[in-house]
Design a binder for these strands. Sequence first.
DNA 1: GTCTATAGGCCGATAGAC
DNA 2: GTCTATCGGCCTATAGAC
Lengths: 212, 212
Amino acid sequence: MSETLDPPSHPAHEASPKRQAIVSAAAKLFMANGYGSVSMDAIARAAGVSKATLYAHFASKDALFATIIGGKCAAIALEGDTFLTDGEDIGVALNKIGRHLMHFLVAPETQAMLRVVISESGRFPELGAAFLRAGPEKFLARLREWFAAQHEAGRLVVPDAQIAADQFSALMRPLMFLRAMVAVPPSPTEAEIATTVDAAVTTFLRAFKPNS
Amino acid sequence: MSETLDPPSHPAHEASPKRQAIVSAAAKLFMANGYGSVSMDAIARAAGVSKATLYAHFASKDALFATIIGGKCAAIALEGDTFLTDGEDIGVALNKIGRHLMHFLVAPETQAMLRVVISESGRFPELGAAFLRAGPEKFLARLREWFAAQHEAGRLVVPDAQIAADQFSALMRPLMFLRAMVAVPPSPTEAEIATTVDAAVTTFLRAFKPNS
DNA sequence: GTCTATAGGCCGATAGAC
DNA sequence: GTCTATCGGCCTATAGAC
């Protein structure tokens, strides 16, 4: 990919309605079908513009894809900025966090984005790094700080909060998550998610709760 | 995909040298580059045959892809049939199992296959299910039985061996695994794998070892 | 079964009028 | 900026000779 992944870069002020229509249509199509099997014709048709207009706003299919992915990464970065609850029972708090995370991970939009990133990160080397920074690494950093605070407050015994955060997150990606990633139905139900998170929190607390 | 994933199905006895060359070349290309961006021309060239010969052995690109994936799934199913060690310290045993699994998960060949399966399971609905059966589900079933045996022997306290197996496996897919999946270097080193597995086993044993 | 040659279609990108 | 029309290339798949 010759373009950076962090733009806005190119011509026509950001808010042009046709440009917005293009971005919106392209995002939907790329997320649903990946990069290769989406044609510029299809994007132009879905956006209700001509292909020439499309190329007036984006220099190439790569550049359009980069813009879309950049936007999606920014959207993930915003996701879940206000759910690290505090001041309640540690088990309840972990349950809330876990449920929020797992819900996010198996959501169709998240799955679509993960699939695209995993599929195309070989062809677009910046893609994987931008995704990691905006998504998992950012989340893990915040969770690490939260764990460190719980450790400080004596509600958990996690001398290495980084590892604990990584392990807690990993427990939210069990077989159920793999099944969703390879598109095998049925999609996880609310009840299955709750059961799985409960089990993960139980295991986590057995390993890290203080009094024991 | 109109073809099943479990074949051998079609014409020309399995062992024709040209057919083997085609399968070998196609496997390499599909695993490295996914389905869409690999052309039948490229496969024919890499196999040293003409495109017409290719179509004499496989009715379509889809059918060829199905054969390749079927072979890969069979190969995963064979993987790791003899590593559930017994009769030693439980921590040592878990470390061996974990190291084996994590090594497998981040190996380039495994990563390539995972990427293809995740990318194409939307377009080829059988693909994800065949992969799950041959890979994770088969492995989890064997690990579950092993855990149940350890529980029986009093070396672990895992009343629900299925959940424990799922959680232990999930702990082998931490951030390091995600990083590999989105092709962000550096690849995990032997030392990083060992450290991560040690930490996972420590956490797992804190939650499930008997005497506590 | 295997080849060469090509049909027929879709794709990314552009030319030129307005 | 936006359109219509089209170029040149690559793709899957096949026809026909041997």
